[in-house]
C-alpha cells in the first residue's frame, strides 16, 4: 500500500482504490474478530469478574447475592489449600514425565528416520497417525487397552491383573504413557524439519575438521535443531499442563482419578458448580502457563537474535 501511494502521478484514484481495498480487507476480517471476541474475550473477562465473587452458574443471577463480591478470598483459599499445591506438583510431575519422554523419543525417532532405508515413508506416516486422532478417542482406546480384565497391555507384557486406570498409585503413569504415545510424533515431525534444515556441508566441514560422530552431534546437530526443539517443548508443556481429555478418557474424573489440576478445575466448576472458585483456579492456571511459555519464548528469541 505504501508503494501505491508513493508511486505514480494519478494520486487521487489510487488512494481511493487503496482505501476501498483496506475496507474490503477489514470487512473480511470482521466475522473472525467478532467470533473471537464472543468466544474468547467475553468469557475471559467475565470469568475474571467471577473469580472475585462467590457465584454459581447453577442458580439464577441475583444482583448483590449471586454473584456476591468477596474480593480476593477465592485466591487466598486456593493458594493456602495444601491439596491444591499437591495437585500442582502432581501436574508438574505429569508434565515433566510426559513431555520429557516425548522429547527424547521424538528426537530419537527423527534421528533414526534421517537415514534412508526401504519403507521409510510408510513408517513415517504410521508413526504420525496417533497425533491425528481426537484425544478423547485416544483416552478411551487406551482405557480398553489397559483394562485389567481383558486389556491387551497386561496380556502382552505378562503383567497379570494390574489395574492401570483405577489404581491411584500408577494411573498417572498410564496417562503419561498415552500422552507420550499420542504426542511423540509431534516432536518427531518438528525435529525432522529441524534436522533436514541443517546443511550437509556443515557435516562435511566437521568431518574435514576431524570431528567424531558424537562431537558432530553435540556441536552441530543439537544447536542447529534446538530452536525447533524449543518450539516443540513450548507447545507440549502448554498442552500437557492443562491436559484433561486423556485422563477423562482413561481414568474418568471420579475418586480414583489422579490429582491433576485440570480435573479439580473441572470438578469444582462443572460438578459442584462453584463457578467463582473455579474461575479463580482457572486464572491461576492461566498465569502459570503464560509465565512458563514466556520464559521459553524469551529464550527462543534470544537464540534467534544470536544467530
Amino acid at each position: 500500500m505504501k508503494k501505491n501511494r508513493k508511486s505514480g502521478s494519478g494520486k487521487p484514484p489510487r488512494l481511493a482504490n487503496s482505501m476501498k481495498e483496506t475496507n474490503f480487507v477489514r470487512i473480511c476480517i470482521l466475522p473472525t474478530i467478532i467470533l473471537l471476541i464472543l468466544i474468547n474475550i467475553v468469557p475471559l473477562l467475565s470469568s475474571l469478574r467471577y473469580s472475585f465473587t462467590e457465584y454459581t452458574a447453577r442458580k439464577l443471577t441475583v444482583p448483590g447475592e449471586n454473584p456476591l463480591f468477596i474480593g480476593n478470598e477465592n485466591y487466598i483459599n486456593l493458594l493456602t489449600d495444601p491439596s491444591v499445591w499437591e495437585r500442582f506438583t502432581t501436574t508438574a510431575r505429569y508434565v515433566i514425565l510426559s513431555v520429557g519422554g516425548e522429547m527424547i523419543l521424538g528426537f530419537s525417532f527423527a534421528l533414526l528416520l534421517q537415514t534412508k532405508f526401504k519403507g521409510r515413508g510408510i513408517i513415517q506416516t504410521l508413526l504420525v497417525l496417533p497425533m491425528t486422532m481426537s484425544p478423547v478417542i485416544v483416552g478411551l482406546m487406551w482405557k480398553l487397552f489397559l483394562d485389567p480384565n481383558w486389556g491387551m497391555f497386561n496380556y502382552l507384557l505378562g503383567l497379570g491383573r494390574v489395574d492401570w486406570a483405577q489404581d491411584p498409585n500408577i494411573n498417572l503413569y498410564a496417562i503419561v504413557m498415552a500422552d507420550i504415545w499420542m504426542w511423540t510424533p509431534f516432536v518427531m515431525l518438528l525435529s525432522l524439519a529441524g534436522l533436514s534444515a541443517v546443511p550437509q556441508s556443515l557435516y562435511e566441514a566437521a568431518e574435514v575438521d576431524r570431528a567424531s560422530g558424537w562431537f558432530k552431534f553435540t556441536r552441530i546437530t543439537l544447536p542447529m535443531v534446538s530452536p525447533l526443539l524449543m518450539i516443540a517443548l513450548i507447545f507440549r508443556v502448554m498442552e500437557a499442563f492443562k491436559v484433561f481429555d486423556l485422563p477423562m478418557g482413561i481414568t474418568g474424573t471420579g475418586a480414583a482419578a489422579p490429582p491433576l489440576i485440570s480435573i479439580k478445575l473441572y470438578k469444582d466448576t462443572f460438578l459442584t458448580w462453584k463457578t467463582g472458585y473455579g474461575s479463580a483456579l482457572g486464572y491461576i492456571v492461566l498465569l502459570i502457563v503464560v509465565a512458563i511459555t514466556s520464559i521459553f519464548v524469551k529464550y527462543l528469541n534470544k537464540a534467534k537474535q544470536e544467530d
Binding site: 546443511p199 556441508s201 556443515l202 562435511e204 566441514a205 574435514v208 576431524r210 544467530d307
Partner: peptide, 14 residues
C-alpha cells in the same frame, strides 16, 4: 589431515 575450504564457506552458523 587435510583442510577443505567450501564453495559457500560452510561456516558453523551458530
Amino acid at each position: 589431515d587435510i583442510a577443505f575450504m567450501f564453495q559457500l564457506f560452510a561456516l558453523y552458523p551458530h
